[in-house]
Lab assay of single mutants.
Amino acid sequence: TETYTFDSEDQAEEFAQRAQKKGYTVEKRKENGKFKVRVE
């Protein structure tokens, strides 16, 4: 499980979609103005 942090929602969304296409489970959340994407 890895967590990635992005400054913009667009970046987080793009990353999450790519990860989902590769078959990963993706969980997105906003925390302290940053966008976190957890991938497993």
Score class of each variant (00 low, 15 high):
Thr1Ala: 13
Thr1Ile: 13
Glu2Asp: 12
Glu2His: 15
Thr3Ala: 05
Thr3Leu: 08
Thr3Val: 12
Tyr4Pro: 01
Tyr4Lys: 03
Tyr4Ile: 04
Tyr4Arg: 05
Thr5Lys: 03
Phe6Met: 01
Asp7Gln: 05
Asp7Gly: 04
Asp7Ile: 06
Ser8Cys: 09
Ser8Ala: 07
Ser8Leu: 08
Glu9Phe: 08
Glu9Lys: 04
Glu9Gln: 07
Asp10Pro: 06
Asp10His: 09
Asp10Cys: 09
Gln11Asp: 13
Gln11Phe: 06
Gln11His: 07
Ala12Phe: 02
Ala12Gln: 04
Ala12Pro: 00
Ala12Cys: 05
Glu13Trp: 06
Glu14Ile: 08
Glu14Gly: 05
Glu14Thr: 05
Glu14Phe: 06
Phe15Ile: 02
Phe15Val: 02
Phe15His: 02
Ala16Thr: 05
Ala16Phe: 10
Ala16Cys: 10
Gln17Ser: 10
Gln17His: 09
Gln17Ala: 12
Gln17Phe: 07
Arg18Thr: 10
Arg18Asn: 12
Arg18Trp: 14
Arg18Lys: 11
Arg18Glu: 13
Arg18Met: 13
Ala19Glu: 07
Ala19Tyr: 11
Ala19Asn: 05
Ala19Met: 15
Ala19Gln: 10
Gln20Phe: 07
Gln20Asp: 04
Lys21Met: 10
Lys22Tyr: 14
Lys22Pro: 06
Lys22Gly: 11
Lys22Trp: 12
Lys22Leu: 15
Gly23Met: 02
Gly23Glu: 02
Gly23Ser: 02
Gly23Cys: 03
Gly23His: 03
Gly23Asp: 03
Gly23Ala: 01
Tyr24Val: 07
Tyr24Ile: 07
Tyr24Ser: 06
Tyr24Phe: 13
Thr25Ser: 10
Thr25Ala: 09
Thr25Phe: 13
Val26Gly: 02
Val26Gln: 02
Val26Asp: 02
Val26Cys: 08
Val26Leu: 02
Glu27Tyr: 11
Glu27Phe: 10
Lys28Gly: 04
Lys28Gln: 12
Lys28Cys: 15
Arg29Leu: 15
Lys30Cys: 13
Lys30Gly: 06
Lys30Phe: 15
Lys30Asn: 11
Glu31Thr: 04
Glu31Asn: 03
Glu31Ile: 08
Asn32Val: 02
Asn32Thr: 03
Asn32Phe: 05
Gly33His: 04
Lys34Arg: 09
Lys34His: 08
Lys34Gly: 04
Phe35Thr: 04
Lys36Asp: 05
Lys36His: 14
Lys36Gln: 14
Lys36Ala: 11
Lys36Phe: 14
Val37Tyr: 01
Val37Arg: 00
Val37Met: 02
Arg38Trp: 09
Arg38Ser: 12
Arg38Pro: 00
Arg38Asn: 08
Val39Lys: 01
Val39Pro: 01
Val39Ile: 14
Glu40Thr: 15
Glu40Lys: 13
Glu40Trp: 14
